[in-house]
């Protein structure tokens, strides 16, 4: 390595670092400050109250219910996305007729904002006026319309499926990238050894894809955990709080009920949960990858 004074790299990261610290750092401090204060209905600070807001959050059964559903939501959507995206990426990486079209179609959900996706689905899922039931009934798949969003359990399931659907493009793209960078010679070698396709997948593809899968997990967990629009637009966390996750509950508290102190506390708790997850994940899983990427930690 060339010897360079340490100042140069610092100067190169500095502008970006400053912007991030400024735009993201300030609101985080503001949030921490707010969470320790009594806050008026409209966000004016009214003096320190210690950890009262946190105590209030922890004694709220709706918080614990939302936390539980957040876990279900995140785990299901992320796992579902991975399980579907990997075979799709493998298919799209292979050469077949119409691959270009297939790739564009799989990427399409990405082209439309989450809010609008949710609005369109809500409109299509309507029990009696929606096109989904009408189509399924025309095809003879069912005889009675189903009210998809009437009960929490079914509504939550539907929302998770849509969550998976919109996460597929991003995840597939990462996997496609991974797949096309795999060395072809190990496959050819295995062919000589008479390995089956499954063996190839199990012993060559999967291990080589591990870093990409890890990245997909970490990023998807972060995005899905924080995702508001699908649930908010389709059910607003209802009926009877049955589909509330932390973000929707937080949004309701902050902007509908005006409990900004409590909402700030929940924000920080959410941040803590994500941080904990990432640290544990990085330590447990990514470490034994023996990360060889350039520039290890000092």
């Amino acid at each position: 390595m060339k010897s360079l004074n340490g100042f140069k790299p610092l100067a190169m990261i500095l502008p970006g670092l400053l912007l991030a610290m400024f735009i993201i750092g300030y609101p985080v401090l503001d949030l921490a400050n707010t969470s320790l204060q009594e806050v008026s209905r409209f966000g004016q600070l009214r003096g320190f109250t210690g950890f009262d807001n946190f105590a209030e959050v922890f004694s709220d059964p709706l918080f614990w219910g939302s936390l539980k559903r957040t876990a279900i939501w995140t785990v299901t959507v992320v796992l579902g996305t991975l399980v579907i995206s990997l075979p799709i990426a493998i298919i799209l990486n292979d050469d077949f007729y119409g691959r270009g079209v297939a790739r564009v179609i799989i990427m399409l959900p990405w082209a439309i904002s989450l809010t609008m996706t949710a609005v369109v689905w809500r409109w299509a899922l309507n029990g009696r006026a929606g096109l989904l039931n009408a189509t399924l009934m025309d095809m003879g798949i069912m005889t009675e319309p189903i009210e998809w969003l009437a009960e929490a359990q079914l509504a939550f399931t539907v929302e998770m499926m849509i969550g998976i659907l919109v996460s597929i493009p991003f995840t597939t793209t990462i996997f496609l990238g991974g797949l096309s960078s795999l060395p072809q010679d190990s496959y050819e070698a295995s062919m000589v050894d008479g390995a089956t396709r499954w063996d190839q997948f199990r012993y060559i593809t999967l291990p080589l894809m591990k870093p990409f899968i890890n990245i997909a997990i970490v990023l998807n967990v972060i995005y899905v955990f924080n995702s508001l629009p699908i649930i908010w637009v389709m059910t607003e966390g209802g009926p009877a709080n049955g589909t509330d996750i932390l973000v929707t509950y937080l949004y309701k508290l902050a902007f509908r009920f005006g409990q900004l102190g409590k909402a700030s506390a929940i924000s920080l708790i959410m941040f803590g949960v994500l941080l904990l997850f990432t640290v544990i994940y990085v330590v447990l899983v990514m470490r034994d990858e023996k990360d060889t990427a350039a520039g290890e930690d000092e």
Binding site: M1, L4, G6, K8, P9, L10, I13, L17, A20, I24, Y26, P27, V28, L29, D30, L31, T34, G43, V218, L219, I222, N226, L228, V247, L250, Y251, A254, L260, S264, S267, M270, F271, L274, L275, T278, A294, G295, D297, E298
Partner: peptide
């Protein structure tokens, strides 16, 4: 390309900025 002091901290910082959703920070 370069080693520099605080590199690990900088990477951690980057990952952390990913974790904050704009919704959570909107007031700030």
């Amino acid at each position: 390309r370069y080693p520099f002091p605080g590199k690990g901290a900088y990477r951690t910082f980057l990952l952390m900025t990913q974790m904050m959703s704009p919704i959570v920070l909107v007031l700030g």
